[in-house]
Amino acid sequence: MTSCHIAEEHIQKVAIFGGTHGNELTGVFLVKHWLENGAEIQRTGLEVKPFITNPRAVKKCTRYIDCDLNRIFDLENLGKKMSEDLPYEVRRAQEINHLFGPKDSEDSYDIIFDLHNTTSNMGCTLILEDSRNNFLIQMFHYIKTSLAPLPCYVYLIEHPSLKYATTRSIAKYPVGIEVGPQPQGVLRADILDQMRKMIKHALDFIHHFNEGKEFPPCAIEVYKIIEKVDYPRDENGEIAAIIHPNLQDQDWKPLHPGDPMFLTLDGKTIPLGGDCTVYPVFVNEAAYYEKKEAFAKTTKLTLNAKSIRCCLH
């Protein structure tokens, strides 16, 4: 018999989150649709729960009410004593943790798909938090293969000092899905179709896995975050240069030392320094102006996964 890495157990509980950011409308629209008619997301033997994560922000069509829901799922915020004085999103995070967690427990949901849009030209993107997770690498390989020839990129946010504390991190297997470009507060049919297909293929993978299909060893190309880059700023902290036209919409493309990065209003080009080629992502993302992030630098690498098969009882 072929030796293989056996994944822990079959997958039982899956959640699909929309509206973690209330103005990213593809996930909101799909989740609302699936709450009314969820036939397309159901798979035999699998509990799939669509869920609106930040209903107040969705109602106002804004990213958040008090603070970013997708950055506060750490033990400090989840452990705060519940009171009306807490920011709305912290209270909501505790409610979500109660419903789908608790985080880092045996009772937490197996998989959470968190649906997002970006204003950046990132196409279909899967966000991975753990480079050693054979199950998710296999799932992402399946999704990428199923979507081809449509490109699907994998963004690895594993980093020693950049801690995200994402909404989906309460699950055993957290999956971020990011599709763009799409303006905030807008629905685009092409973007919706791409996100819908990503979810379909992900659920198909889980179904095949649960039925005992063995997935042979595989490898995927990923883009691992190195650092986030702020806009150049003046002495008052105001933005002093904008994304250069040569960099705009060039997510995932190589940016070499000396290539144009920013452009000042008086026409001066600010190039990339250093001696390493990087791959920019979230270029000129609207939501990241407040976070002082013009783009993120990534490096390209390959992740390998062992063969996996479900432990059938």
Rank of each mutant, 00 (worst) to 15 (best):
Q182N: 12
A305R: 04
L99R: 12
Q42N: 11
K292C: 09
L136H: 02
V154H: 06
H244E: 05
K291F: 07
I225Y: 15
G212I: 01
K163I: 08
I220K: 02
Q194R: 14
E9N: 15
I143S: 04
T166N: 14
K49M: 11
V229C: 07
G19R: 05
F205N: 01
A7W: 11
K32E: 10
K253F: 05
I177W: 05
C61N: 13
P181I: 00
F29T: 15
H207V: 15
D114H: 07
Y231H: 00
A296E: 08
H201N: 07
C124L: 08
G176E: 06
N133P: 03
N284T: 04
I308L: 15
C4W: 10
K200L: 11
P257E: 03
C67R: 12
G19T: 03
Q182R: 05
I206C: 10
C310Y: 09
Y173T: 08
T302I: 14
S83P: 12
P260H: 01
D190I: 02
K13F: 00
T167D: 06
N236V: 08
Q94K: 13
E47V: 10
L126Y: 05
K81L: 14
T302K: 09
E227G: 11
F209I: 01
T298D: 05
M122L: 11
S146V: 07
D110G: 01
K103L: 11
L30M: 07
V175Y: 04
V186A: 11
E89F: 03
M139W: 01
K292T: 09
C276Y: 10
E9Y: 07
N134L: 06
F215K: 02
R91I: 14
P183N: 07
E178C: 15
L78Y: 11
E84V: 14
K103E: 08
L25S: 15
S307I: 00
Y155K: 11
H21Y: 14
S169Q: 10
S146E: 14
G176N: 08
E9A: 11
K291R: 14
P217A: 11
G22A: 10
L99S: 10
I52Q: 01
I41M: 02
Q12R: 15
G274S: 06
Y279H: 08
K253S: 08
K163Y: 08
Y155T: 15
G267E: 06
A7D: 15
H159T: 14
Y289M: 15
K228H: 12
N236M: 09
D74H: 11
N97M: 10
Y289Q: 15
P260M: 00
G185H: 01
L35D: 08
P149G: 01
V31N: 02
P183I: 01
L312A: 15
T125C: 14
I16N: 04
E9H: 15
T298E: 00
P102L: 10
M82G: 14
R196T: 02
W34L: 02
W34Y: 08
T20I: 04
D85L: 13
L78V: 12
V48A: 03
T53W: 01
Y142P: 04
D251C: 15
K268S: 09
V28C: 15
S161V: 10
G38M: 15
C67P: 06
H159L: 08
A148C: 08
P151D: 09
T277M: 08
I137V: 07
P160M: 08
A219T: 14
D66T: 08
T44P: 15
Y223E: 06
T20E: 00
E129A: 08
A57L: 05
D114T: 07
G123M: 01
G45N: 10
F205I: 00
V281I: 15
G185S: 07
V278Y: 09
F113D: 02
T166R: 11
E24L: 05
L303H: 01
M122R: 01
A240W: 02
H33E: 15
L255V: 08
A296F: 08
A165S: 14
Y223L: 00
T119Y: 05
K103R: 15
P260C: 01
T166G: 13
K172L: 02
I72K: 11
D266L: 01
D104A: 13
N210S: 06
P254C: 05
L187R: 04
T269M: 09
C61G: 14
E89C: 01
L86Q: 12
P102K: 11
K80Y: 12
A148D: 13
L46M: 14
T119E: 08
Q138L: 01
W34S: 03
F51R: 01
E221Q: 07
M198L: 10
V278F: 07
K80V: 13
I111N: 06
S131R: 11
H201F: 11
F262M: 04
L162M: 14
L86P: 11
D68T: 02
R233D: 00
K228A: 09
Y289E: 15
S3V: 08
K172W: 03
L255G: 03
E290G: 14
C311T: 14
A240R: 11
L150N: 11
R233H: 07
P181N: 05
V179G: 00
T2G: 14
C276D: 15
H201I: 05
K144Q: 15
M195N: 01
L126G: 03
E129I: 01
Y164D: 15
H313K: 15
H33Q: 15
Q42P: 04
N23M: 03
T167C: 14
N134F: 08
H21N: 08
P87E: 11
L25T: 15
D230Q: 14
Q182C: 15
L25C: 14
M82K: 13
P254Q: 06
I170H: 06
A241L: 00
D249Y: 05
H141Q: 07
Y231K: 00
F17V: 08
K80D: 12
H256R: 12
R56T: 11
G22D: 07
E129P: 14
L75Q: 14
Y109E: 02
L69R: 06
D68A: 01
S120P: 01
E89K: 00
D249T: 04
N121Y: 00
G45Y: 01
I6C: 10
L156E: 01
A294V: 05
R309F: 05
D74N: 13
F282V: 04
I226Y: 08
I41C: 05
K32Q: 12
Y109G: 02
C4N: 15
P174I: 11
Y231N: 02
L99E: 12
E238Q: 12
N23G: 06
D251Y: 03
N284A: 08
I6K: 14
S105K: 12
